[in-house]
Amino acid sequence: MFTYMRNVVDSLRTTVKGMQVTWKNLRRPETTVEYPEQLVPLPEGYRGIHTLDTDICIYCFQCAKICPVDCIEMRAERVEKKFLSWEVFNIDYNKCLFCDLCIEVCPKDCIHMDKRDGSAKFALITDDRSTLNLDILEYKGLSEADKVAVVKVREENAKKAAEKAKAAAEKKAAADKDESEDKKDKADDSGK
């Protein structure tokens, strides 16, 4: 009989407690964002699509050698005996692990992984897999229009964040004030 009653009471009590927790979370701000419209800033060193600075590249092929999945296809042509020029530099993103090893082995620091931050495109989403074999010689990072868009989005985000922070700070200040007043009241009460 005791267990019976305890079960009834326990289930009611824990249900109410759980509902309190969900209620608390109901009043918290959302953590998700509307993705394509609103962008989450990516950190420095984000691993995205590669960019190659052909001016300083010394054609050492180390990046292709270290690649664990052999996704870099490169072929260089000899021009005037000494100089080389890239004929093919493709990276197959069907295979790429985004492991960052090619960037690290580069002795001249000429290959990078681009953030593509805020380019408002679903960067690698495609319905045709063949498009994922990108010609890195063609791809020079963000286009000018994209860069402008990125700056705009960033500014907007920063503005929103600042407004939010301001509102939160004001709210907090008000809450603190209330709290301190409450405490004061309580102190007064206890004093009496």
Binding site: L42, P43, R47, L97, C99, M113
Partner: peptide
């Protein structure tokens, strides 16, 4: 973790001999 290594799930951050960054 993304902040330090640039990836969210498959980090490849701890390397032989140390860490990546």
């Amino acid at each position: 973790l993304e902040w330090i290594c640039g990836a969210r799930l498959t980090y490849n951050f701890i390397r032989i001999g140390g860490v990546m960054r």
